[in-house]
Amino acid sequence: MRFRPLAALSVAAVSVVLLAGCSSSPEPTDTSSPGSGALCEAKLPAGAASDAVEAEGEVGEVPTVSFSAPLEIEDIQSTVLVEGDGEQVSEGDLVNVAFVGLDAETATELGSIGYAGSEVLPQQISAETSIGAFLGCATVGTRVAVTLPADTATGSGAQVYVLDLLDIVPTAAWGEQQEPVEGMPTVELAEDGAPTVTLPEGDAPTEYELAVLKQGDGATVAEGDAVLVQYQGVSWNTGEVFDQSWGSAPATLTTTQVVPGFADALVGQQVGSQVIAVLPPATAYGEGEINDEDLVGQTLVFVVDILGVQQVPTE
C-alpha cells in the first residue's frame, strides 16, 4: 500500500488515497470462521507497533491517541482497540468510516476526517481494498489502530491511524415514501431497490419536472458537492434504459460535472432520498436531431437514489 501524509491531502482526496486498494502488504491473519469469506481473511495482523497505540474517547468521536514516540514501524499492522457490537460487514458493503492520523516520529496529529459528517463519501469494503485490510469483517462500532511504515518512494514518514467503523450504508434510498405526483412517470422497485419506470401516455413534457419519491433525513446536497448515487436513465423517446448504476456499483459524481437537469435533481435534496426527474433536451444533452448515440434531442427520465454526500468545505 502507498500513502501520503494526511496533512498534505485535501478532504476530497483523503478517502481516495488512504482507503485505496492495497498493492502490497504483509500476509493477512486468518480471523475467519467457517463460511465467513475472504473479507475476514483479509484483516491484517496486529503487531508490536499497532499494539502500542492507545485511543481514548467514544467510537464516532475524535479520539485522543497516544503512543511512545518515536514509534518504530516495520510493516503495516492493525490492532482492534474496540470491538463493536453492531452488524458485521460483508464483502461489497458500503460503510461510513472516520479516522485520525498522527506522525509516528513525533506523535503530532496530522488531521482527522469523517467525525463531523459529510466529509467523506461512504466507502465500499472488500478484501481488495485498504479499508478491508484494516478492518476485515469487523462489526459496526469497531475501532482499530493502523501503523504504516515510511514510504521511501514518496518520502512520507511513518504514520499511525485510528479508524472507526461508523455504520453500514444501504445501497438504495431508505427515506420515507412520498405520494406520487400525478402525470409523472411511475416507479416500481425490485427487492434490491432497482427501479422500473413506466412512462405515462402522451407527448413528452416540454418543461423540467422533479418529484421526491422517498424523503431522506441526511445531509443536504449543495452545488459542487461529490455525491454517491444509484441511478437509472430512461429515454422518453424510446422507453428504453440507456444507462444505470444498478447491476454494477453506486456511482460517484459531482454536481458540477453532470447535465444541468441531473444536477438540479440533486442540489437541495437530502441523503437517503430518491427523486425522479424529467429532463427536456434543453436541460439534458441539447436540442437537435435525435441521435441514439449521444442522446441529443431526447427527453430523459432519471431515477436517483442519494446514498451519501461529501460536502465542499466553505471558506
Rank of each mutant, 00 (worst) to 15 (best):
V181S: 13
P185T: 11
T186R: 10
L189E: 13
D192Y: 12
D192H: 12
G193Y: 13
A194D: 14
P195V: 08
V197C: 09
G202V: 00
D203R: 06
D203Q: 09
P205N: 07
P205Y: 11
T206L: 12
Y208K: 07
A211K: 03
V212S: 07
L213M: 13
D217L: 03
G218S: 03
T220E: 15
V221P: 01
D225R: 14
A226N: 14
V227I: 11
V229K: 05
Q232A: 15
V234R: 06
W236N: 02
W236I: 00
N237Y: 08
T238G: 09
T238F: 13
G239L: 04
E240T: 11
E240D: 13
Q244F: 05
W246I: 08
A249H: 04
A249M: 08
P250W: 02
L253F: 14
T254W: 01
Q257L: 06
P260T: 10
P260Y: 11
D264V: 04
A265K: 04
V267Y: 08
G268A: 04
P280L: 02
P281R: 06
A284F: 12
G288R: 08
G288T: 05
E289D: 11
I290A: 11
N291C: 03
E293K: 05
D294I: 09
D294A: 06
V296H: 03
V296S: 12
V296A: 10
T299D: 11
L300C: 03
F302R: 00
F302V: 13
V303I: 11
D305E: 04
D305N: 05
V312H: 06
